[in-house]
Design a protein around this nucleic acid. Sequence first.
DNA 1: GATCATATCTTGACATCGGCAAGACGTCCG
DNA 2: CGGACGTCTTGCCGATGTCAAGATATGATC
Lengths: 216, 216
Amino acid sequence: MAPDDRPYHHGDLPAALLAAVDEVVRERGAAALTLREVARRAGVSHAAPAHHFGDKAGLLTAYATEGMHEMATRMAAARTQAADPGGVDALRLLTDTLGRLAVAYVAFAVEQPARFTVMFGSEQLHTDDPLYQAATEEAFEQLYAAVLEVRRDLQRDDPELMHAASGAWSVVHGFATLWLAGHLDERVTSVPPEQATAAALGAFGTTLFAAAGITP
Amino acid sequence: MAPDDRPYHHGDLPAALLAAVDEVVRERGAAALTLREVARRAGVSHAAPAHHFGDKAGLLTAYATEGMHEMATRMAAARTQAADPGGVDALRLLTDTLGRLAVAYVAFAVEQPARFTVMFGSEQLHTDDPLYQAATEEAFEQLYAAVLEVRRDLQRDDPELMHAASGAWSVVHGFATLWLAGHLDERVTSVPPEQATAAALGAFGTTLFAAAGITP
DNA sequence: GATCATATCTTGACATCGGCAAGACGTCCG
DNA sequence: CGGACGTCTTGCCGATGTCAAGATATGATC
């Protein structure tokens, strides 16, 4: 197509830029992303992105927020999903709500590693952005609700509940992060993320039991 | 001192450069670090760092490796430390070997957030560097040994042991990472890392027990 | 102790980047 | 029909990482 096929006004440049970010990030990784490359892919000048997103961090924050929403949606789906009545695996941890949430979290990260890395790459984001914070809380709220389902003894605003949810978030987030950084043993990451998550969480839970002197 | 006080040969420029990296990273964060700024602080030309470390990623990898060693040392100290015979806290998780390791891990991250961020910022590191990998395994080995202490039922090369150690690493790493990224609630991070780690791990452990139908 | 290879560091240059200011262009509302 | 406004371009700036070539000191060899 001739270069002048493109009208002066793009139509929906913000969306096109976010799509270009996704392209670059998938191909070259988050660190190699430049504003000018994004602009080139969207077919606009190098200064166009700044007009809509302020600066590079603003563009990445918008991209990260998009990803947070998608992850929160997938977590919500996993949480409300009917439990598999047949399967009973290690400590019943992986068939209940909390287990399905963990699997959804890790699966999202492994399927979209570059996106996940940007989402939590706080150094190049505007972490005080209200939309970003809201999207993050939306995802964390899923974990919060799942823990509340298990801990019937707790009130909604109990600090203990917050601590428990933070711990739950930590284990899935750490597992995903270490996986993407290549720090986990190949014996762990050579199977699909669903199985790997189940194995690691099950083994860790058993270890906690053993540490507490319980052998179920 | 006059600018010509400095001899042509520095003496130990690599060490001086690593110290300069630490300065910059503490003051401005890992993302704001530039080779030229490091060179300025060390009092050498802008191209000097490349001679010793190849490129920017090489310098950061050396700095990360240094940090990994320090963390591994602190973890080893925590592991071999005598257990506090008096204290018995939530599920006895925090006074045993595994608990002390967790506290050491999180405390290191919170005390030196920028350094910790660089250590696991795989995007700007040469993660295939043998020294870096060795230092990482040195730290992980501490967790591995601690889990083995608890899981007497397992052999050293049992995959279950690897999964359990990966889970243990995940929870402490995720907690530290989320903390540094500012994603944890203020009620969690407003206390010293030792207490916060104990609270989150304890509450999470209790939740796992509840999910398994155990009420200790 | 002189000579020369080698390691260390400097100088200069280049392409590229993010951000800014000013202007061109299109749209929309009066 | 006209002017205000949002959209995008052009041009430019300082700064950065990397490379090549040169200068300088060290250490080994004779």
